[in-house]
């Protein structure tokens, strides 16, 4: 599907605005997250899973961002969903894209977002016994970790 067709399909199915600059992005509510992923993979042909991450917008809560590409038609799509303030759960894209596995583990590690239906959600970059989720804005970059000062 080309870029225009993609935009039209997204607008019609999800009824949301698709912004196109600088990269085509679509924001949905968290309950339609997995549906959006499946739609992107099966209908829009975006089979290349680039990355999945999150942004901490302080009072407005967390936002989960994923990027998928359609390599055949050269279309990039940024999928976003705003979890509300205080919400830390989101449905997982692992059943749709296998690459979301490690990316969601990293999101859990760094932001504390628990992904439902994830096969093996545990910390990936930090130790299993680490307390706190570093990339939240409330975590200071030089938080000391005993026994090291």
């Amino acid at each position: 599907m080309t870029a225009e067709e993609t935009r039209a399909a997204l607008a019609s199915t999800f009824g949301v605005e698709v912004t196109s600059a600088p990269v085509m992005s679509v924001t949905v509510s968290p309950d339609r997250w997995e549906e959006l992923g499946r739609f992107a993979k099966e209908t829009l042909g975006c089979r290349f899973f680039s990355f999945l991450s999150a942004v901490d917008w302080k009072e407005q809560g967390l936002e989960v961002v994923a990027k998928v590409d359609n390599l055949d038609d050269n279309v990039s799509l940024l999928l976003k969903t705003r979890l509300g303030p205080g919400v830390t759960t989101c449905s997982s894209l692992t059943p749709v894209y296998r690459g979301a596995d490690w990316m969601e583990r990293e999101c859990f590690d760094m932001f504390g977002i628990r992904f439902e239906n994830h096969p093996d959600l545990r910390r990936i970059l930090l130790e299993d016994t680490w307390e706190g989720h570093p990339l939240l804005k409330s975590y200071a970059v030089d938080t000391p970790h005993p026994p090291y000062r």
């Binding site: 089979r47 290349f48 899973f49 680039s50 990355f51 390599l71 894209y97 296998r98 690459g99």
Partner: peptide, 20 residues
């Protein structure tokens, strides 16, 4: 399929037949 699904890129992707 695995290559695109997981999101590998570069020589790994091109070694599996995807022209990108």
């Amino acid at each position: 399929d695995l290559a695109q699904d997981v999101g590998i890129a570069g020589p790994l992707l091109r070694g599996s037949g995807i022209n990108w």
